Measured scan of single mutants.
Amino acid sequence: SSGGSSILDRAVIEHNLLSASKLYNNITFEELGALLEIPAAKAEKIASQMITEGRMNGFIDQIDGIVHFETR
Rank of each mutant, 00 (worst) to 15 (best):
I38R: 00
R72I: 09
G54N: 06
S5R: 08
E44A: 15
H15S: 13
S1W: 04
T28E: 02
D64G: 15
E70P: 07
L36N: 01
K42P: 02
G58N: 01
G4R: 07
L36C: 04
L32R: 00
A34G: 06
M56D: 00
M50E: 01
A47P: 00
L18V: 07
I66W: 05
I66G: 04
I66V: 14
E31C: 10
Q62V: 14
A47E: 00
Y24V: 05
I27N: 00
G58D: 01
L23H: 09
Q62P: 14
I13W: 07
S2C: 10
R55A: 05
E30M: 08
S1M: 07
S5E: 13
E14Y: 06
T71R: 11
K22C: 09
N25Q: 13
P39F: 04
I13K: 03
D61R: 07
A34S: 08
A11Y: 09
L32S: 00
K42I: 15
I46H: 04
R10G: 07
G3E: 12
I46F: 08
N26C: 15
D61Q: 05
E37G: 15
N25P: 08
N57A: 12
L23R: 10
T71N: 13
G54I: 02
T28N: 05
K22M: 09
N26L: 13
Y24N: 03
L17K: 00
Q49V: 07
I66H: 06
D61V: 08
R55I: 07
E14H: 03
I51G: 00
A47T: 09
E53N: 07
R10S: 08
G33H: 02
N25V: 09
G33W: 03
F29H: 00
E30Q: 10
S48N: 09
T28Q: 02
G58L: 02
V67L: 15
G4L: 07
I66P: 01
D61F: 06
S2F: 04
A20L: 15
A47Y: 03
E30D: 08
D61I: 08
I7H: 11
S5I: 12
G33K: 02
K45V: 10
S1F: 03
G54S: 04
Q62R: 14
I60S: 02
A40H: 04
I46Y: 09
M56E: 01
K42C: 14
Q49A: 09
R55T: 06
T52H: 12
A40K: 07
A11W: 13
T52C: 10
G4W: 03
K22D: 04
N25G: 08
L36H: 00
L32P: 00
S6Y: 05
I27K: 04
Q49C: 07
D64K: 15
D61L: 08
F29W: 07
L18F: 06
N25E: 10
A20F: 15
F59E: 05
H68D: 04
T52M: 13
S48C: 11
M50G: 01
A11F: 10
K45P: 02
I38L: 07
R10K: 09
I13T: 04
D9A: 06
H15W: 09
N57T: 10
M50H: 01
T28F: 03
F59K: 08
K42M: 15
M50C: 03
G58C: 03
A20P: 00
S6D: 14
R10E: 10
R55G: 03
K45M: 15
E14V: 06
E44L: 15
F29V: 06
L18N: 04
A40R: 06
I60Q: 01
L8A: 13
E44S: 12
N57K: 14
R55W: 05
K45Y: 13
G33R: 02
G3W: 05
E31P: 00
Q62G: 08
G58I: 03
G33Y: 02
H68R: 07
E70L: 13
S19T: 14
H15C: 13
H15I: 11
T52I: 12
